[in-house]
Write a protein that binds this DNA or RNA. Structure first.
Lengths: 229, 229
DNA sequence: GCGAGTTGTCACGCAACTGTCACACAAGCT
DNA sequence: AGCTTGTGTGACAGTTGCGTGACAACTCGC
């Protein structure tokens, strides 16, 4: 995982260029296309972290793109911000109906769009908003894909990394094994509940440090949590 | 499991999936169905903590589902949020008439729905809404699964935790042993009434503090209660 | 194709928890 | 006081839940 990937679907070249520039400036990795069909292709290739979607675009209409994104397995949960023409109230209706997360009516200030994109990413996936998560003596940089404990770099496997990231996105909170499977493995996974134990153990082993207490707390008959202190 | 259980009745697949994902993210345990009859079955099986109900659904209509939920013994007080089409004023009236607790007109932002669900849950069952319960010098954080007395963390077994949570959700109220068994152990459990005594004792032992009086009150020939002071 | 790293599962053992009992004790009644 | 009824308590056997090491299958870069 690197910079958050953003897919911008906008057919006004001037606006597209402006937004692309601004988002790149914000540290996003941006893909731009004026065309709905191409947008779907790009999204299918590799699911972006967020989609900014103009209502009136060439090829497949914005609403249809929205609907198909929701149907795609890998893109079903990707947040979508719709851009609609001013006063097109019906668009709002259908936009949210088909699962857009937020919408902006033109004209809007680029700043506001960026603010909303940041807000949504922070809410959905704090680690993607370019933040370095810190809990106690642990810190996790999702962009650099690096974890340190008390400044020392720690090596973790991919799964342990995602597991730790999820814990650090919700410090102190207790998650059941089922919730962890949903969040870290994906809700479709058919994995033994007890497998979580094993990865918890590997995570513990990975981040253990001399003279420091284990920040991963076992809550009997409930699950696990990452302790803030 | 401590996650609040939510039943979502929505026949638009895209919206349903979006909402399911959002609520999962908020820590809810979600069941989804597009069908009114199935919704009733699911609710009858195990009563959810809250129902989000679309007005226009397959099978039995939303309003009918609402009415039947209110008739069901176990589902009578389950809060219901109705989703209605825009401007369908009559629906609002009838929705509230039949006992919906709140309604949202489409389009709505997922954020707003989540806010209302949280608000209602806070009212009905504070411990489920990520709230920290406080009674006297005791405080209980259901999400972090932590209990403190006068700021000091207290260790409790799973059953004692649930027992205390139940008391703190209804401070001052006296519960018979039978009621406690229903609420804490589950209505199906076939457990000796006197076993409650033992767990009350373990709870007392767990939360006892130097120079502080025991907040668990024994009401002879009636049951137990947690005293507010 | 090969080796290092990663992943999911299992079986075993231990520690914590649970439900029950018997008996001691307290509270109300006549 | 005596009696009756209801509650506190310590002990205990059975159960549950979790940690752990081992292992085969798998992935991926080379």
């Amino acid at each position: 995982m690197t910079a958050p990937r953003l897919l911008l679907v906008e057919d006004d070249p001037a606006l597209a260029e402006l937004l692309e520039f601004r988002f790149r400036n914000e540290g996003y990795q941006v893909q731009v296309t004026p065309d709905g069909d191409e947008a779907l292709l790009l999204a299918a290739e590799e699911a972006p972290d967020l989609v900014v979607l103009d209502w009136m675009i060439e090829g497949t209409s914005g609403i249809e793109v929205c609907r198909r994104l929701r149907k795609g397995k890998t893109t079903a949960h990707v947040p979508i911000i719709m851009l609609t023409a001013r006063g097109a109230e019906d668009d709002k209706v259908r936009g949210l109906d088909t699962g857009a997360d937020d919408y902006l009516t033109k004209p809007f200030s680029p700043r506001e769009l960026i603010a909303r994109v940041n807000a949504i990413l922070r809410r959905i996936r704090p680690a993607l908003a370019g933040e370095v998560l810190t809990v106690g003596d642990l810190s996790l940089d999702a962009v650099a894909h690096k974890v340190t404990r008390s400044g020392k770099v720690v090596a973790l496997g991919p799964t342990e990394f995602r597991l730790l990231r999820h814990f650090m996105e919700h410090p102190g909170r207790v998650f059941s094994r089922g919730q962890l499977l949903d969040a870290v493995w994906g809700s479709e996974s058919e994995i033994e509940l007890r497998t979580v134990d094993v990865h918890i153990r590997r995570l513990r082993k990975g981040i253990e440090a001399e003279g420091a207490i284990d920040p991963v707390r076992t809550v009997r008959s409930a699950g696990y949590s990452l302790e803030a202190n």
